[in-house]
Amino acid sequence: MSSTQQSRHDGPSGHEEDDRPGPTPAPTDARPGLLPAPAPVQLIDPSGAACAETALSRPDHATLARLYRAMAVGRRLDAQITALTRQGRLAVYPSSRGQEACQVGAALALRAQDWLFPTYRDSVAVFTRGVDPHEVLVSFRGDWHCGYDPYEHQVAPQCTPLATNTLHAVGLAHAARLRGQDTVALVLLGDGATSEGDTHEALNFAAVWKAPVVFLVQNNGYAISVPLAKQTAAPSLAHKGIGYGIPSHLVDGNDVAAVYAAVRQAVEHAAAGGGPVLIEARTYRVEAHTNADDATRYRHDDEVAYWLERDPLRRLELFLEHQGHPLDLVQISAEAEEVAASVRARSTGGVAPEPGALFEHVYADPPASLARQRADLQDELQRDEEATA
């Protein structure tokens, strides 16, 4: 085709574009809403006082009470699971104490048909979505990679490698869009994951193809032991969305009202065909990275104390009290204890491992080499059984 000829093709947005000899420049108009607020948006301040509503509307009292209950249950479960880990009943557990507002606010903002893509630290979000805590602990015991059915509650397996779940979320969301399904994917990631190439690819693809994805970055200040200042020179992690053309928001991650409102608004935006949204929620990881980490080597007690004073549960409790809607803390505490006791009881009995299960769900059609290994193992187990008979 000569340089004077023109053809037309469908671009990623679905409309026809001119196919000229040179590259077609991207739109240069600055779309409104790309820049995040200069400071984290709050609807309830650390003292429990109401903040002025701006672009976000504070949830009603019934929703706030539901958010508090889920945070209280989540915190109690987190403490119980941490104790089980210290007793040697679990191999490892990454606590999310202090990040309850992010996980509960995000999970409850989803609709039933939406998907959650959690990381290894997002067990509380998974519990809040309705997954049985006992099934969540299967992976932390080392029994299976995922102990629950992802399709039952629209919750993907918890992801340990940083940022790989961002690509999973974008893939599902894009496929849903192609099928005409009303589905939004919410992917949870930490500040460390924003330094990974997978996050770049996910943000870029989602923006170009307007995939209905909400990226929620729980910025807890550390990528294991690396502080945020050594991870990025950006004014905020929310600013990273600008380069992709993604609307970005910065919220107080310890204000569950702000997190819920921001995620809910983003889900509605994505579901309406507006494309992806990036939200940075500033929060703090109170406990160590995992039970194998010594956080005292890289942070001071006064830093932890500062954040303990900004406890998300206490903040909401005070707000509802000031508004004349006090919570029944005794009843909520009893309910949380009942859930924790159930997990504790179900975790005391050991499960005898089945060696043959090692070969299950590895390949749809096992190769000959794997079949030989399985046969060798069965022969060895049979010989051991005969020798001890």
Score class of each variant (00 low, 15 high):
V259F: 03
L308R: 14
F319L: 12
V304D: 02
Q231M: 10
A257R: 05
Y284Q: 04
P355S: 02
F117H: 01
P27M: 06
A175N: 05
A223L: 11
D191W: 10
N254Y: 06
T28F: 07
G324K: 05
P40L: 09
T119D: 00
A352E: 06
A389Y: 02
P21Y: 05
P353C: 02
D384R: 05
I44E: 09
Y284L: 08
R372G: 04
R31L: 15
G48T: 14
I242W: 12
D301M: 06
A37V: 06
L318C: 15
G350C: 05
K230N: 09
R86Q: 14
D182A: 15
G190P: 08
P157A: 11
L313E: 08
A70L: 03
G11Y: 01
G22V: 10
H61A: 15
N254T: 15
V104N: 01
G273M: 06
L108V: 08
A334H: 07
Q5L: 12
A79H: 11
D191G: 03
D18T: 06
P38G: 04
L358R: 15
V226R: 03
G241V: 09
Q6I: 15
A65H: 08
Y244F: 15
A258T: 01
G22T: 13
Q218K: 04
A37M: 11
D293R: 04
H269D: 07
R8Q: 13
V208Q: 02
E16C: 07
G33A: 01
H239A: 15
L320C: 11
A229P: 00
T128Y: 00
Y284I: 13
S2M: 10
F140K: 08
H9E: 11
G14L: 09
A357T: 13
L237P: 00
C51V: 08
A106M: 05
A52W: 07
V351C: 09
G245W: 03
G171S: 01
L381P: 10
L327A: 13
D252H: 03
F319R: 04
P235I: 04
G14R: 04
R111L: 11
A70E: 00
G88R: 06
A125D: 05
R297L: 14
S195Q: 11
N219H: 00
S123E: 03
A368C: 08
P157T: 03
P23W: 13
V138Q: 07
P21A: 07
V73E: 15
A375Y: 05
T24S: 06
R314H: 12
Y244N: 07
V362G: 07
A233I: 14
T24F: 07
I44K: 07
D29A: 15
P235Y: 10
E287A: 12
